[in-house]
Each structure stands twice: as structure tokens, then as C-alpha cells.
Simulated scan of single mutants.
Amino acid sequence: MSKDQIVAYIISDCTGKTAKNLMESTAGQFPNCEVEMKTFAFVRSIEKITEVLKQAKEENAIIAYTFVKSNMRKHLNQLAESYGLKYVDMMEKPLGIVSERLDTAPKEEFALKYQLDDAYFKRIEAMEFTLQFDDLNESKGYEEADIVLVGVSRTSKTPLSVHLSYLGYKTANVPLVPEVDVHPAVLEKKDNKVVGLTIDPKLLNDIRIERLKKMGLGDDATYAAKERIDEEFKYADSIMKEIGCPVIDVTDKNIEETAVEVLSYFED
């Protein structure tokens, strides 16, 4: 393994999402380096920690972990130090600060945050709704949605919709195609729920060409032609202007950044 390559082990007594997000954000600051991430979720025994750490030693991995039980954190720390491995304990300091402020010891129980509450069921309902109304152009989806995204094909409408649904927002998305009339319910902009998405035409062309290649089609199809893209943009711009909705350029944004901007339009 070269000096520009590292392996990061994500170890958790739950899903590992928190530690993984940290390492992904960190890796993003080193775009010229390769960071391979391996996730070990639901690690809930000393024996399993030992097994994973032995594997980490072989790859000289960096470790980011979240354990709520202090004995598991202590075991991993000691073993990592004996192996000469670098590690980040993401739970010890937050637990200590909150425990000190509340003058109460943490329960050290697995996955308390994942108990089934109203927020959980709201999120599931939003996700089911969003999958049902992906790329549909009809009144029911618009009327029941919290957010409606509009834009030409390949402007990240679907992944953004799914991300917003995970946050608990019922999200419908409507493709803007010159040959298909937009449903009147969308054009009426009732309740101000519509947000438009746009992107740099050159980048869109590249994205569509890659999409065609994955589908086993040539890159000369009309779908990726400059003239077709210009036509779609002209149509989409006219529709979004008619609706009077805010428009977000997703060219240099990831899904999370775009979601934050979308939600800013719905703040009280």
C-alpha cells in the first residue's frame, strides 16, 4: 500500500453511521489520497473487538469507533495501543461532558436512539411516500407532499428526494420534459412547496453520457445531445419561471448541501 493509501476501520455497536460520516468528511479533505473504509457494525462483544482489531493490525488501519459501554471502549483502546494503531473514540468525550453536566451516569445500553417513536414512523411513512411518487406527474403526489422537486432528468431529484424523506419530509419529484405537460396542481404552486433544480449544461451532458454507457447505449443518443439538453433547459426554465419557485443550482453541491438549502425555504 502506497503512502497515499490508507484503510479506515469503522467499528460500532450499532450501524456505524456516525463514525463513518466523520471519516468520510475527513477523507474529503484529502482528495488526492485513497481512503478505503471498512465498516464493522453491531460489534457487541469483547471477543468480536479482538477479532476485528487483529484484522486491523494486518492492514495498519486507522480506527474510528462508537461504543456506549465503557469496558468495550477500554478494551479497544488498550488493544489498539498495543498494536500501534491510531484510533478515534467518538463516544467517550460527549458521554463524559453530558454526564458531568447532568450529574448522572450514562445507561450504557445499546441503540437507545433507535427506539420506535413517532419520529421513526414519520420517517418511514415519508420514505414510502417518496418512493411511490418518484418521477410522477400527478395531483395526488403534489397534494400530499411536503416538498415537490422539479427539474430536467439527472439533476439529482431522486437521491435528493430520498435524503429528504429520511429526514421525515414527504418528497415528490416531477421531471420537466418538453413533450409532457406539467400537471396543473404543480403549476398552481399551492402552499409554496415547489423547488426547482438546475445544473451546469456541460456537466449534465457528461452525466448523461455516463448514464448511456452504463445502459449499454452509444453516447450519440438524443438524450445526451447538446441540442436536446438546451431544449430541455429552455422548457424547464420557462416552467419554473411560471411557477415562481426558488431554483437551486446543484452543480457544485452534494446531496446533503442541497437538502439544507431546500429546507431553508420551508423554515418558519
Results as ranks from 00 to 15, higher is better:
residue 52 V to H: 10
residue 54 K to W: 10
residue 57 K to M: 15
residue 57 K to D: 15
residue 59 E to I: 11
residue 59 E to D: 15
residue 60 N to G: 03
residue 61 A to Q: 13
residue 62 I to P: 09
residue 64 A to G: 15
residue 64 A to Q: 06
residue 65 Y to A: 04
residue 65 Y to F: 08
residue 67 F to M: 11
residue 68 V to L: 13
residue 69 K to A: 14
residue 70 S to K: 15
residue 72 M to A: 12
residue 73 R to I: 06
residue 74 K to W: 01
residue 78 Q to S: 12
residue 79 L to Q: 14
residue 79 L to D: 05
residue 80 A to H: 08
residue 80 A to L: 04
residue 82 S to V: 02
residue 82 S to A: 12
residue 83 Y to N: 10
residue 84 G to D: 12
residue 84 G to K: 04
residue 85 L to Q: 13
residue 85 L to F: 08
residue 87 Y to H: 14
residue 88 V to H: 12
residue 88 V to R: 12
residue 88 V to G: 12
residue 91 M to Y: 00
residue 91 M to V: 02
residue 91 M to S: 02
residue 93 K to D: 05
residue 95 L to M: 03
residue 95 L to P: 02
residue 97 I to M: 15
residue 100 E to N: 04
residue 100 E to W: 01
residue 100 E to D: 08
residue 100 E to A: 08
residue 102 L to R: 03
residue 105 A to T: 13
residue 106 P to I: 07
residue 108 E to W: 03
residue 110 F to R: 05
residue 112 L to D: 06
residue 112 L to K: 09
residue 113 K to G: 09
residue 113 K to C: 13
residue 114 Y to H: 15
residue 114 Y to C: 11
residue 117 D to G: 12
residue 117 D to E: 14
residue 117 D to H: 11
residue 118 D to T: 05
residue 118 D to A: 12
residue 119 A to E: 13
residue 120 Y to E: 09
residue 121 F to K: 01
residue 122 K to Y: 02
residue 124 I to M: 14
residue 125 E to A: 03
residue 126 A to T: 08
residue 128 E to Q: 14
residue 129 F to E: 01
residue 129 F to T: 00
residue 130 T to K: 07
residue 131 L to N: 06
residue 132 Q to G: 05
residue 134 D to W: 00
residue 135 D to I: 02
residue 136 L to N: 05
residue 136 L to A: 04
residue 137 N to C: 07
residue 141 G to T: 04
residue 143 E to A: 07
residue 143 E to G: 04
residue 144 E to R: 10
residue 144 E to M: 13
residue 144 E to D: 14
residue 145 A to M: 10
residue 146 D to E: 10
residue 146 D to W: 04
residue 147 I to Q: 11
residue 151 G to C: 09
residue 152 V to R: 04
residue 154 R to P: 06
residue 156 S to Y: 04
residue 157 K to R: 10
residue 158 T to Y: 12
residue 158 T to I: 07
residue 158 T to D: 12
residue 163 H to G: 05
residue 164 L to H: 07
residue 168 G to C: 14
residue 169 Y to M: 00
residue 169 Y to V: 02
residue 173 N to R: 04
residue 174 V to S: 02
residue 176 L to T: 04
residue 176 L to D: 08
residue 177 V to D: 01
residue 177 V to Y: 01
residue 178 P to H: 07
residue 178 P to A: 11
residue 179 E to M: 00
residue 181 D to K: 10
